[in-house]
Each structure stands twice: as C-alpha cells, then as structure tokens.
Amino acid sequence: MSRLDAKVSPYLFVAPFFVLFGAIGLFPLLYTAYVSLFDWEVGADDPTFIGLENYRTLFDDGQFWNALFNTFSIFVLSSAPQIVIAVAIAALLNENLRARTGWRMGVLLPYVASLVALTIIFGNLFGPQYGLVNDVLTAVGIGPIDWQADTFGSHVAIASMVNWRWTGYNALIVLAAMQAIPREVHEAALVDGASPLRRFFSITLPMLKPTLIFVIVTSTIGGLQIFTEPKLFEPSGGSGGGTEHQYQTVVLYLYQSAFQGLDLGYASAIAWVLFLIVIAVAGINFLVTRRAVR
C-alpha cells in the first residue's frame, strides 16, 4: 500500500494542472489551428474545408495589418516611458524615506484598481469634447486634441491607461532589484569619489539589466494581447476600435470577427497568427536576455 502510494501519489498531485492545461490551454490552441482551415460560421451545421484560404485573405486584409500596427504602436508608447519613469520612481523609493511602506502602497494603488472601471474613467478624462485633459490643454494654449478620431492621439490615450496602471508596479519590482545590489559596491565607489549620478549610471543601472529585461518580456506578452483598453475606449460599445479602426488592436479584431462577424474560421486564423507572433517575440526576448545576463 505505502509503496503504491509513493509511486502513484506524486503523479496524482501534479495531474490536475496537466489535465486542465491540456483541456483548457493546449487543446483549444491546437484546435484553433484546425478551425482556421474552415469556412466556419457560428451555428452553421457543416463547416467547409478551405485549406489556407483564411490566411490568404488575412495577409491581404488591410484591417489586419492596421490592427497589427496599432498593437505595436500602443505597445511602444506604453512600454518605453513606463520603464524610464519606473526606474526613476524606484530610485526615489530607495531613499531613506519616512513612512516607507505608505509610499510603496501609494505607488501601487493603480495596480489593484479594476481595469474596466479605470478604462471607463480614462475614456471620460480623454473625452474629445468635455474631457478634463482637453480642458487643461486648452487652458495652457495647446488646444484640444481629438483623442478618439486622431490615430496617434488615440494611441497616446490608450497607452496612458497602460502606463498609469503598471508604472508603480514595475517601480516596486525595480526597487526590489536595487535593494539586492550589495552595499559594498556602492561604498567602494563612494570611496573612489564617484558622484551619486555617476554611481547610478555606472553601478545601479547595469546591475538592474536582468530585471529590466524581465519587465520588458512580461509586458511584451501582455502588451501584444491588449484588449480591454481599446474595447472600452469606444464609447458606444462597438468593437471596431474607432470609426476608422484607428485604435483597433489584433485581439479586438479577433473578437469582432468571431463574436460580431460570427466568422469563427477567420477569427481563428487571426488568433493563430498572433499566437506565432507572441511566441516569436517572446523567443527573441529570451535569446536577448540570455546574452545580456552573460
């Protein structure tokens, strides 16, 4: 009995994860590739096999390329400033502050807020007509920007939601890495007469590199699948990502194709192409990380 227990129980303990991942994670992904080979409408009885036709259509589909461009554009606008500000905030938090935990909590506040609620609030702040952001811009003389209709403007508005939510969170991750830097390194530099700024750029920043790359990799995987922000930025509840699809992202296009266009085959082709892009980008990131850490 106890020998059987020792042999079998470990497998039973890890089984729930593998069963669930197989059924809910892996199988649907593979089946997505299968569905993408069909002309498959929601509710239709017999889907027709059409080979790679969906992919051929996809590569000629301007709306798909537009969505891909928007996704990358929003991603760049949201990751680059975010990391710079996160490092700066982490450096400030690394000072010998009074009420240390209180400051850290304050910085993390946006992270716990409901994403849907916040996106709606930002939609109001960036309202083209009566939004607070435009009121302020008008007051300082820059003039109002149409955050909905303007492609670049809408990307900035959506990126600012991402930045607002994640900068503090990433600042804490960077802070943890800063505190792991041995004190002696800084003290040695201090003895050599290095200025604080010099110490930051010559010691702190290089030693943060692995952490920064970790932050970039995780935000890439999430960023390429951005959905909630562009979905809710459109006030009327549509999924087009604006009247001219100016801020429609790939996952939003997937959602629109599958659940409004009811074309499951085509939406599956979008999902599968995005899947390959995410894996490729994550793989490149991984290779770069390994080299950088060495």
Binding site: F21, I24, G25, V35, L224, A258, A271, L274, V278
Partner: peptide, 24 residues
C-alpha cells in the same frame, strides 16, 4: 521534464484559444 513543461507554459498565451473554448 514535467516541471520544465510547467515553466514553458508560463509564456504560452492560452487566452488566444478562446474560440474553441467558446464552442466547447
């Protein structure tokens, strides 16, 4: 091997399987 598999799945965007999941 099994644990390596767990770690590898961390990077898999399973969210993209929603269409078959919805059908199921």
């Amino acid at each position: 091997v099994l644990f390596l598999f767990v770690v590898a799945t961390l990077a898999v965007p399973t969210q993209l399987g929603i269409i078959p999941l919805y059908m199921a």
